[in-house]
Design a protein around this nucleic acid. Sequence first.
RNA 1: CUCGAGAUUCCCUU
Length: 422
Amino acid sequence: IFLFNIMMKEFCKVGKVEKAVELFRNVKRNGIVPDRFSYNIIMSGLCKTKRLEDALHLRIEMAEANCQPSVVTYSTLMDGLCKEGRVDEAMKLFDEMRRRGLDADVIVYSVLIRGFCGQNTVDKGIELFHDMKQKGVLPNVVTYTCLVHGLCKMGCWEEAMKLFNDMTEHGLTPDVVMYTTLIDGLCKDGMADQALKVFGAMIEKGFKPSTVTYNVLLNGLCKEGLIDDAFAYFEKMVEGGKRPDVVTYNTLMAGLCNCHKVDEAMKLLNKMLDDDCSIEPDEMSFNMLIHGLCKVGRVNDAMELHRKMVERGMVGNLVTYNMLIEGSFKIRKVEKALQLHQEMVAMGFRPNAFTYNIMINGFCKKKMVDAAEKLLYEMDTEGLGPSLVGYNTLLASLCKERNLDRAMALFQEMKDGKCKPD
RNA sequence: CUCGAGAUUCCCUU
């Protein structure tokens, strides 16, 4: 079983989880008894391929085989649940684990903390952070990184910085991932200058920024409109021997589009398309440009680019269609927008909240308020929930049309609990 | 050293 475990693990590592499961089944059928490692390996593989239900079911099978779950079993499943946003269920497993007399370790806590941070309940994460320390489980760099990430995501960059310092005072050395997380978080909280300081401090301490570190920094600078600085750091990146990747290029293309340099962005895309460039564009690369073109009103060029994309064997994704639909409305081609919408559905893409809101906005601009309203309610029945953006869009449109009675009625409906106004 | 955790890029209203 020792050897089979290694094989299963390797199958999972190269993405052939199906093969691993098959091997697991064969092993069992041939009378070899899997140990808890085998179960854990398969569970982990299933979670990584979004087959959480199968993983949870395997836990039952494990119990039936009289194989006791370990802390690793629990953390694997809790991680899977958290990544699906099912943190409450992960907490149930956490309780169950403790009832069975298993002590949570630093990984269990880090998984849960990250889970809470992912659904913007960092306070719960902090609670667990204190809980673990009280129980004598020492947080490590990963634990701190999860919290820093969560805090920045909620705009609490000062708290994040405090925690970062707190960590070093506790004798832990930040690593590249920690630095990158903090730099990204600061940028996203509008603190690019602080981020640059941290970047400088990082280098001063002798840490080598990774490609991801450069990417987050470039993104931060681009979002601030500092495209020239972004390119300056891009140069440094290359000089420093860090290979740009497709994310680097996509980030720079977005930055160029943001300051209306769409043709420059196009040059970057063409560079990637060049045969002697080792970086291949992905769907996002095309999407960046499609967005840029739509934004400056060159919707037909965007459509043309979409065609080129399809020629290269990329069909585009939901985002591509959302942007093209929005573009069509922008140049007042409602029929084209509807046609794209149908095409998108036919291709198996389920319209999301963005799609609906784009259509609502499009209809509003055409003064087709009833159609817009119909879509607004359809979102709910389609399980997308009421959309604040959708309500706001329709409200704004009604006000513009001097249809204040209807606007007030809609506003009242929101206050009555349909959708909390902002 | 047979198993588990952390970082980056695209779309909607004002």
